[in-house]
């Protein structure tokens, strides 16, 4: 095994990891705000990928141009989800919250199967395609581009949350709902905003993935599992944590697959989760 192969694996891992990171950031943001794990997160990703696919299929819009459209669609879906479902279960038990988002996941996936059929689809001849070689390491343009866009979106998210007034309000609600309410920050609006942002994150990730990934109704399953792992690793509610955790997962997945056996990729990532939560339940970067 040459060093090039290992470098190749690490680079692919990092590129994929940045996408996991953005997906996880959306999940983490929602969790931080209202302590609800969105078990439909992967299915929201799948919807974003289908949205991108249909924009291309029906209107010939390339994924890099349909990103804003998909973001708008998903943000609206987020607000809708909050308004019609989440808002009503905020004070329910954790079981009911888990069940409601699982119910949503089941519905979305089944609807996708019904309307889109379980077929695998791809976007043919997108603007960004091909690959290049540096010192024997191959990097695909779509992968590289996707990671850059996700990283960029991540930075925007970070700046929004930390530098803008609305972002600060969001953080205040996340830390102490009642105190924020007293300061005049309407938590309900903040929650809706959280859902809009959370789903915008998967919209970006989904658009970029559909440049080079198969689009099918079950596509979100593994991504959401990795996102759960990333959020737990990074500490539930920590957006920065999910960036590092996402990259770690990407590397574990691809290097583990290279060194041991690629068919057990999922298991390496899960093993990382179990080790982390059993040894350090608050996550690597989480506050307790």
């Amino acid at each position: 095994m040459t060093s090039q192969v290992i470098i190749q694996a690490i680079i692919s891992g990092i590129l994929m990891g940045l996408i996991y990171a953005l997906i996880a950031a959306g999940l983490s943001l929602i969790f931080g705000l209202m302590e609800i794990v969105n078990f439909a997160h992967g299915d929201h990703l799948m919807l974003s990928m289908f949205s991108t696919f249909w924009f291309w299929m029906l209107f010939g819009i390339d994924p890099i141009f349909s990103i804003p459209l998909t973001i708008i669609l998903m943000a609206f879906l987020g607000v809708f989800t909050h308004y019609f479902i989440i808002r009503k279960i905020l004070n329910s038990t954790m079981l009911i919250q888990i069940c409601a988002t699982f119910g949503l996941a089941v519905t979305i996936r089944a609807l996708a199967q019904f309307f889109f059929t379980p077929d695998f689809r791809t976007i043919k001849n997108p603007i960004i395609q091909g690959k290049f070689e540096v010192y024997g390491v191959f990097i695909g343009y779509p992968q590289l581009f996707a990671s850059f866009v996700c990283l960029f979106a991540f930075i925007l998210l970070y700046l929004f949350v930390t530098k803008t007034e609305t972002g600060t309000a969001l953080q205040a609600t996340s830390q102490d709902r009642q105190a924020a309410e007293i300061l005049g920050i309407p938590s309900n609006k903040m929650f809706a905003l959280g859902w809009a942002i959370g789903l915008s994150c998967v919209a970006v990730a989904g658009s970029m993935l559909s440049n080079y990934y198969y689009v099918f109704p079950d596509v979100g399953v593994n991504f959401s599992l990795f996102a759960f792992v990333a959020v737990a690793l990074g500490g539930f509610g920590s957006i920065n944590g999910s960036l590092i955790a996402g990259v770690i997962i990407g590397i574990v997945e691809s290097v583990g697959g290279l060194l041991i056996d690629p068919s057990y990729k999922l298991l390496y990532v899960f093993a990382v989760y179990l080790l982390v939560v059993i040894l350090r339940p608050q996550g690597i970067f989480g506050r307790y």
Binding site: I89, S92, Q97, C99, A100, F102, T107, R109, A110, F114
Partner: peptide, 21 residues
């Protein structure tokens, strides 16, 4: 069943969670 059963399941469960936890 073209997953129609799952669509109904999902919707029923969401309704239960909201109205009859």
């Amino acid at each position: 069943g073209r997953s129609i059963d799952l669509i109904i399941y999902g919707i029923l469960i969401i309704l239960i969670c909201i109205f009859r936890p």
